[in-house]
Nucleic acid binder design. Sequence first.
DNA 1: GTCTTATCTATGTACTTGCATCTATATGTC
DNA 2: GACATATAGATGCAAGTACATAGATAAGAC
Lengths: 166, 166
Amino acid sequence: MYLHLYVKLEMPAKSGYTPVMPRPLPDQTIAAWAGLMRVSQDLLTRVEADLKTAGYPPLAWYDVLLELKRAGAGGLRPQELQARMLLAQYNLSRLLDRMEGQGCVARRPCPEDRRGQIVVMAPQGRQLLKRMWPVYEAAIERHFAARLRTEDAARLGRLLAKLSPR
Amino acid sequence: MYLHLYVKLEMPAKSGYTPVMPRPLPDQTIAAWAGLMRVSQDLLTRVEADLKTAGYPPLAWYDVLLELKRAGAGGLRPQELQARMLLAQYNLSRLLDRMEGQGCVARRPCPEDRRGQIVVMAPQGRQLLKRMWPVYEAAIERHFAARLRTEDAARLGRLLAKLSPR
DNA sequence: GTCTTATCTATGTACTTGCATCTATATGTC
DNA sequence: GACATATAGATGCAAGTACATAGATAAGAC
């Protein structure tokens, strides 16, 4: 369990009975972790609330629609959507059910793999994406950008990039 | 809706029919927002998975227990917990139901306010907190700290602080 | 004191998510 | 081809979360 920590000690285990005793995390690291969890949750809650107040669905819908728009006419396999959105397979399956029910996306059979399907943008989805953006943008401005100069945002982005899913 | 953006244009509206046209967010800001949402979700998922694999409950339990430990013998009112954890009132109520059911916390009547209650640490909770930490710490190390030098973590922490719930 | 309004917490109901597993198809082995 | 195994996506059921609102007490207006 601790091997990856142990390695960082950069000194050999003295003997067979030395207990595993990883170097504890620096306080600054713990504080950064806690800050990341807290701030991201807080901001997400606020932005989602703004969207809901304006009568729009959750951000996950926006993300699906944006990916589909980027994917163009060829659409996307659910698996690709799942990977890009870091969403569990069964959650995506049901999210697509709901979005399909609202006419936002369409599922089409996949010629190359008959187990699969291709998800494409539908008219309601295109419209929803376009209408949601101003509200979403204003929420990002209000809750996020208003507190961070652009250079700080850029710095934050670079730090976060180091933490990105590889 | 856009007033707060409009103000930032630092120029007067020319006439009554000038459409509201906020300055769009800089790409770097949008990228930082997207990175924040994506990275935090990814890391949270990974860390929660490590905890679950080790047989432990979700992080929210840890957070409650940590707050109760810090609060000491006097315990905390649910409202205070709610504010510190950024948790909805009804979610906390039910979280406490579950934790109480496992003997991790106890609810006691509040003498000053008979509508309220005081939540205190219970023996199982104290033990759980102690046992969870090494697993939690290792998960933070593995998924977060291992990708970020301590100085970068400190920088990240400072940037996030600017975004903190005020 | 009485009444109105606000606050603290709980809860019925609906919706969403998680887990385990299913069906169908694909791929690999012999 | 026959079989075992793997992969794509759906789904029954349990657990958790959201919304609206309830019940109890408190605080303020008069």
